[in-house]
Nucleic acid binder design. Structure first.
Lengths: 335, 335
DNA sequence: CTGAAAGCGCTTACAG
DNA sequence: CTGAAAGCGCTTACAG
């Protein structure tokens, strides 16, 4: 068992309040007292009991990060950044995985472990705007990576439509005219998939290119195997195409693999671009062009915003748009 | 602010103790009482305050998972499994990243957030056996992925020597005789790198093959770029080789990329195998053979063991060896 | 600049 | 089977 504030107080010959003042770095403590107390703290190897502090003060210093799956590199990289920056701000991050299942996302939304977490960073996949609006809990929440434009909650994300437009425009700038898209949602729910589809179609129209329905391939998730399946499907359709915009880098990894297996040359025959900017894309063969969201900025902005809310910042829902960047690699390089 | 036990008690017309009994599922509560209390709980949307429970009972239901970096797929996949299984066992996981830096690992070892976490799952990289032995805290701890054979702590890991031997034997079984190894530690600290080196050399000797120092390439970490650099270095050495055992899959990803760039055929010219069994290896070109630890088993075994310790299980340090499996893919397939 | 006291919400012996 | 009371370790007004 560790030492308590009282133990330290006794040893230093001061009151509990004074020890608390020292521990919490208050200014109005005489230097001599501070030194004495600090010595007692060191000798007893005192560590504050966070549960007690949380019970009393209502703050735990813990925030939850709820995301679909850590195995998805984009989320792992994002989680990395969140955990890192939160630590810098003195917060600890607890992870929840929902697998993108609506039921589990609803549980997160309803607020598990309230009283223990100060706030929630949430990257939902299946939740609708209607679900969000029904939220009861008052635990501060910031949404990540969603931006359908009308969530009744704070959110931090890239402009998905603009990002998808940029990806498509890049392929167009290469002179490609039959540009396929992999990652259309299978079900008609809201979400980033539709926003990316919107950006894709917008860019095609702006360039006077036809939007061909057969070149829009649906997938269930954004995984490598989804990408591989979608690619096989696209090839089976027999429709000609000279470029592909994959709604995620992982989809692109799967698609690349299938093309290489079948002797399709990338980028000569087909130029490819993804979206996510994951590290893995630097090492595929060929390396993968992508639209890279500034994940560090997403993480920092979200944590900062959440801490403001936890601190009592009152204002209508806030939206912070994070920049993204076109990264041209071999899969769409000049060939 | 939410309802407290007392609020529920008042509403249900019973004592706080009775509500507590219902909440915690004790048996000796009259059915009528239980029903009444449950109704009050539902009406008030009561949720237990975990901080209070933790302060009083000494248990928080939170365990920490400390690992180097979530961006490394192996750790992300492991974290995924830990978070998932911990949830199944009613525990929440909080993540610490050390970047494999000894100073930060020492902080983890010394016990941050004691009083808040019930136990620690720790995958250290730079810590020595000596560091471990000096640990003061009594928070239960289970080590992951380390197994130098003499930690003064519980650990759960594959048999690294055997895994490396299996990888090397596989290459030997292909008829390869000049087998390089990428991933020798740069500094002479303990750790899995040396265990894998040991397994590699053991297999060579057992097969009567020469252990060639020039074919042992050192790296700083186990990343893709480390693998690429090591590969370039190996090629520059001019030494002939017909196979490579990479101490991690990520190293192999980097090495593969460099070989393909230079027109070296895998597996025809050089057979390659990694170690880690990450998902990414299914999609490289060619797909990557590997030794795959059973990550689910590591996660479950570790969480179970930790919970036993938290529950008061007293015994000398325990070691649980988890199975690994040879997965043959294109990079070492029959060509 | 420092102290004495109340109370955050829960669980746990102790009674009955 | 249920109740009244103490106390986990901390912070926060309130005094002085």
């Amino acid at each position: 068992v560790g030492a308590s504030l009282r133990d330290v107080a006794t040893r230093a010959g001061v009151s509990v309040k004074t020890v608390s003042n020292v521990v919490n770095g208050y200014v109005h403590v005489a230097d001599a007292t501070r030194t004495r107390v600090q010595a007692a703290i060191d000798e007893l190897d005192y560590r504050p009991n966070l549960s007690a502090r949380s019970l009393r003060g209502g703050r735990s210093g813990i925030i939850a990060l709820a995301l679909p799956d850590l195995r998805v590199p984009y989320f792992a990289e994002l989680a990395r950044a969140v955990v890192r920056y939160a630590e810098e701000r003195g917060q600890t991050v607890l992870i929840d995985q929902t697998d993108g299942e609506r039921d589990r996302e609803l549980v997160v939304l309803a607020g598990i472990r309230t009283h223990l977490i100060d706030g929630l960073l949430f990257s939902p996949l299946a939740l609708t705007v209607h679900d969000m609006a029904g939220r009861q809990t008052r635990t501060p929440m910031v949404l990540l990576g969603e931006r359908t434009g009308n969530e009744p909650a704070d959110h931090v994300a890239i402009d998905n439509v603009a990002a998808a437009t940029a990806a498509t425009e890049h392929l167009i700038s290469l002179g490609r005219t039959r540009i396929a898209a992999i990652g259309y949602p299978r079900e008609s729910i809201e979400g980033t998939g539709w926003l990316r589809a919107e950006g894709y179609e917008k860019a095609l129209r702006a360039a006077g290119l036809e939007v061909v329905q057969g070149l829009q391939v649906r997938t269930h998730w954004f995984t490598r195997s989804d990408g591989a399946e979608a690619m096989a499907e696209l090839l089976e359709s027999g429709l000609p195409f000279d470029a592909i915009f994959c709604f995620s880098d992982l989809l692109a990894v799967g698609a690349l693999r299938v093309m290489l297996e079948r002797g399709i040359r990338v980028p000569e025959d087909v130029a490819v671009i993804g979206l996510d900017g994951i590290e893995e894309g630097r090492y595929t063969m060929p390396s993968l062009s992508t639209i890279a969201p500034d994940k560090e900025a997403i993480a920092c902005t979200a944590v900062d915003l959440l801490l403001e809310r936890i601190g009592g910042y009152e204002a209508p829902s806030v939206e912070r748009v994070i920049p993204h960047q076109l990264v041209v690699r071999e899969s769409s390089g000049s060939a």
